[in-house]
Design a binder for these strands. Structure first.
Lengths: 189, 189
DNA sequence: CGCTTCTTTCAGAAATTTGTGAAGTTGCAG
DNA sequence: CTGCAACTTCACAAATTTCTGAAAGAAGCG
C-alpha cells in the first residue's frame, strides 16, 4: 500500500565515463555492478524506501562479500561520506545493515545482515502491530457497533491475521531453503 | 523494509476548537473520528505512505458508509479540494479507493474498496515481481557463480517465495473470514 | 442554453527531504 | 602526546515534494 508515484529517478548518475581512473578495485564495479545497483535501488525507492539508503543497500548486496566501508561506499556511489553516514544510520535502525569493526583498524564495515529479509519482516511485523493497536483504539472510540467501527475492525482483523501468517511464512521459508540447499549441495555435509 | 524516520508529524492540525460552527454532520466527526484519522494516518505515513493519501484513506475508512465526496473530505481534513483531488488520484492508481457517481448529482463519491487489503497486496505482488526481475538480471550480469551473484539469487529466491505465499495467504484469509462470519452471524443465511 | 455546483488542473509558494563541505570525534600508531 | 585516518555531526544549499488559490472543465437543472 505504499508505492510512490512510479517513476522519479530514471537517468541519474549512472555515467559510465570513468573520469580519469579510479582505484583498481573499482574497474570491475563500474562495468556491471553499478548498473544493477542503480536499477535495483530505483525499484526500492519507488516502493517507498529512501533513495540513498536503497543505493547503499543495493551496493552492499552486490559487493564481493556483503560488506564495505564508508569510504568504499562513498567512492562507488559517488557521494560524500556524510551521505553514507546518514543512510547507514537509517539502515541500522531498521536492521537491514549491521556495523562491524575490523580488529586492528579504524575502518568500520557495514554489512548486509545475513537474513536481511527476516529482519525486514520482523520490522514489518512491528509496524502491523502498531497499526492494529491504533485501529483497535479507534474502533472502541468510534463505536464497535457503528458501520465505521465494523469497517475498522475488519481491517484490524485482517492485519492481525497477516501478522500471524507472516511468522508462519518465515518458518516455511527456512524449511524451503533448508531442503533446497540439501538437494543442491549435498557435498560437504 | 521501508519505514521512514519514525516520527515526523506529531502535532498537526488536530485542533479541537471548532472555530465557529461547521456543518452539523461534522459535530460528531470532530469529536472522535478526527483523532483516529490523524493517528492512523500518521502510522501509515511513517510506513512510507504519502501523508495526504493516508489521511484521506483513514477518513474514508472511518466514515459512516465508507464513502465521502471531495468536498466532505476537504472539510473534514481542512485542506483544499485540490489536495484532495491529487491524493485521490493517487489512491485510485494503487487501487485503494474507487470513484463512483451519485446518480442524480454532480457529486462524485470516493469509496474505500471493499477488499482494500486484497487490492493492496495484489499491488505488493506486482512490486515484488519487478524486484525479482531486476534481481535475476543483476545476478546474470554480475555472474551467477560469484559471491555477489549467489547473494542476489538468494534474495530473489526469497522474494519469489514470498510472492507465492502471498496469494496463498489471501486464500486462507478468505476462508478464515468466511468461517468466522458463518459463526458470528448465522442468521440471514 | 446558460446558471450553478462540484471537481480538476496548473502555476507557484511553502515545507520537507536530501546531500554537501567543513569542523569535530574517536582511536590506532609512532 | 602528537599525528593521522576514518567516520560522524552540523549548518546550510539544492532539489523535491506537497499544498494552495485561481481558473478552467464537467454535469445537472431551470
Amino acid at each position: 500500500m505504499e508505492q510512490q508515484e512510479a517513476e522519479r529517478q530514471d537517468e541519474r548518475n549512472v555515467e559510465p565515463p570513468a573520469e580519469e581512473q579510479r582505484s583498481d578495485e573499482l574497474r570491475q564495479y563500474d562495468e556491471v555492478a553499478s548498473a544493477f545497483v542503480e536499477r535495483f535501488a530505483a525499484d526500492m525507492t519507488e516502493a517507498g524506501m529512501q533513495r540513498m539508503a536503497a543505493r547503499i543497500f543495493a551496493c552492499l548486496l552486490s559487493s564481493e562479500d556483503g560488506s564495505l566501508s564508508s569510504a568504499q561506499l562513498a567512492e562507488r556511489l559517488r557521494v560524500s561520506p556524510a551521505a553514507v553516514s546518514g543512510a547507514v544510520r537509517y539502515l541500522s535502525q531498521v536492521h537491514m545493515v549491521s556495523r562491524e569493526r575490523e580488529p586492528g583498524s579504524r575502518r568500520e564495515l557495514y554489512r548486509v545482515h545475513e537474513n536481511v529479509w527476516h529482519e525486514a519482516l520482523v520490522d514489518r511485523d512491528r509496524i502491523l502491530g502498531r497499526w492494529a493497536k491504533t485501529l483497535r483504539t479507534g474502533e472502541a472510540s468510534i463505536g464497535p457497533d457503528t458501520p465505521a467501527g465494523r469497517r475498522i475492525r475488519e481491517t484490524c482483523d485482517f492485519l492481525e491475521f497477516m501478522q500471524q501468517e507472516l511468522s508462519q511464512m518465515l518458518e516455511r521459508w527456512r524449511a524451503h531453503r533448508a531442503s533446497r540447499d540439501a538437494h543442491e549441495a549435498p557435498r560437504d555435509g
